[in-house]
Structures are given as C-alpha cells and as structure tokens.
C-alpha cells in the first residue's frame, strides 16, 4: 500500500500546487511514472531524485517542455486528450494527473485512459464545491475567481469543473475504485480522515484520489 501519512518534503513547491507535495508522498520507490500535464517537470525531477522513479511526462506548453527537457526528463509536447492513446496497456506503475482533468475536453475518457495505461492513477482536482466558490456563485451571482482558480470565465483553460462529490460519482461510473483519498484545505493541509464527504466537499479546496481499475 501507499504511505499516505508522510508530510511535505518538497522544498520548492509553489503554494498553489501544494498537491504536488502530497502526490509525491504517494509514489512508491523505483516506479515507472507518467505525469500528464507535468508543467516544468518539478514533480518528476523531485521524484527521480527522491524515489528513483523512471519518469515520463506529457506537457502542452513549449516553455514547460523546454524546462523539463533541460532537467533531463523525457517529456512529450502533447495533451491528455490526444496522446494517451499511444501508450500501451499497463505500461506504467503510476500515472499522475495533477490539477489537469478540469482542462481536458473529455475528462471521462481521459480518466479511463489513465487507468488503462497505469496500474494506478493519482488524480488531483480543484474542488468546485468549496464554500468560497459556492459563496461567490450564490451570493454575488458571479462565476467564481479565487487565488487557486484565478481565471475569468471567458479566458479559463478549465472547461470541465466538478466537485469532489461529482468526481466520486464518475469514478463509480467508469468501474474504478478509490484506494485512497483526501482533501486539502487552502494551505495544503489534509482535512481529517474521519470527516464525511459533505465536509470535504465544502471545505476541501483540492481533492486527491488514488484510483485503480476495479478487479472482477
């Protein structure tokens, strides 16, 4: 099983990507890992140094690819919607999709692909059910803009927002199971494990899920 109790050991994680630190703690030693939407490759580089993984990435932005290649990572310029299909079944021990699902065209398809090519997937999502977001919507009647989700509705890359509860439903629909999960508050601290779903959905700014295909 994954160790989900370790604290943050990543020194240079930006505040808005606190999920990276938590994701890092879920990665087993020496795993073959694909990070979809790997940005500048900071997480993969850290995992290669700390967990001796065989790291691969997919990244849309030219700047991200440049930075990743300069770090010595194997990163393909591409996107989750188009490029996951080329990877063989079970080619990775772990596939990571960190804060990217909401920006894909077909989130359900992407999620299914993650579980086809990886024995396990770690997916983190911004929670659209968080109280700060709900309050902007209900009190002011405006599409929410927060520190973590700074885009206006007309220029956001995030086209498929969901809440933690929505995501849990989708996981059931695609016949996968959640083997570990937790919500993070605004400062990246884990919320209590004993808290019920409605509490996570209201107070978790991000949800982190470890998924596996359901075995029959």
């Amino acid at each position: 099983m994954f160790d989900t109790t370790g604290g943050s050991r990543i020194p240079t994680v930006p505040a808005s990507r606190v999920d990276l630190a938590v994701v890092g703690d879920l990665v087993p030693e020496g795993a073959r890992v694909l990070d979809v939407g790997c940005g500048d490759g900071a997480l993969l580089e850290w995992l290669e140094a700390a967990k001796h993984i065989d790291g691969h990435g997919i990244e849309l932005s030219q700047a991200g690819v440049n930075a990743s290649v300069a770090r010595g990572l194997s990163v393909i310029q591409g996107d989750a919607d188009a490029d996951l299909r080329t990877y063989p079944d079970g080619g990775f021990d772990l596939v990571i999709l960190s804060q990217t699902l909401q920006a894909t065209n077909r989130p359900r398809h992407v999620l299914e692909e993650l579980l086809r090519i990886g024995r396990r997937a770690i997916v983190s999502i911004p929670n659209f059910g968080h109280w700060r977001i709900r309050s902007q919507f209900f009190l002011w009647g405006r599409m929410p803009v927060t520190e973590d989700l700074p885009y206006s509705w007309y220029d956001t890359p995030n086209i498929h927002f969901c809440t933690i509860r929505d995501f849990v439903e989708l996981v059931k629909e695609i016949d996968a199971e959640i083997v570990a999960s937790f919500a993070l508050d605004a400062r990246g601290r884990k919320l209590s494990f004993k808290a019920p779903w409605w509490f996570w959905n209201l107070f978790g700014e991000q949800g982190v899920f470890v998924l596996e295909k359901r075995r029959r």
């Binding site: 030219q62 690819v65 290649v69 194997s74 310029q77 490029d83 080329t86 990877y87």
Partner: peptide
C-alpha cells in the same frame, strides 16, 4: 515526428518531443 514519438512511447523508450514554432 509524432509517429516516431508514439512508437518510441509504445516501446517504453525515454523520449522527449517538441514542435518548434
């Protein structure tokens, strides 16, 4: 180039790819 990259990915190779503007 993508054909090459996809074949390398399918073979499990360490591959980086960039399309230059």
């Amino acid at each position: 180039s993508r054909t090459i990259v996809h074949a390398l990915a399918a073979a499990g190779a360490k591959v980086s790819f960039a399309e230059i503007e």
